[in-house]
């Protein structure tokens, strides 16, 4: 299993536990509902898919089986920075909007969107018909 996949899968498991913990705490869930959902669908499910696809999809080439590393690493970083930023900023702003600036949410969304594009662009050449 490539190192990047190990990072994806271990982080996914951390988000799974974090998401379920939030779900088990009704007072936290009341202000962190969207963050709870996204911890599970982005942090757990999507991240697990990214990691396993990076590992198991058909080889890009014999020399570079998984394609360029730079985009793949950037995808991992952007997805997690964006998600953590969202999970921290959104509930805090829902609780007390003056605590953190709203543009941080735009940054969080932009980072995750770039991660989605990065994954799609790096995976596309490995979707091969045979």
């Amino acid at each position: 299993m490539p190192p990047l996949t190990r990072w994806y899968i271990k982080l996914a498991m951390v988000y799974l536990i974090a998401g379920l913990l939030i779900g088990a705490l009704p007072p936290v869930l009341a202000v962190a509902g969207p963050a709870y959902v996204h911890l599970l669908v982005v942090g757990w499910i999507t991240q697990m898919i990214f990691g396993v696809a990076y590992w198991m999809f058909p080889k890009y080439s014999a020399e570079v089986p998984r394609g360029g590393n730079a985009v793949a690493i950037a995808t991992l970083v952007l997805l997690n920075v964006g998600l953590v930023l969202r999970v921290v900023v959104e509930p805090l702003r829902a609780w007390r909007p003056e605590l953190l600036p709203g543009w941080l949410l735009a940054v969080a969304g932009f980072a995750q969107a770039l991660a989605g594009i990065g994954f799609a662009v790096s995976t596309w050449p490995r979707v091969k018909v045979r």
Partner: peptide, 10 residues
Amino acid sequence: GAVLLAGKGI
């Protein structure tokens, strides 16, 4: 989703 999230802040 990025647009939706941004709309919550700006």
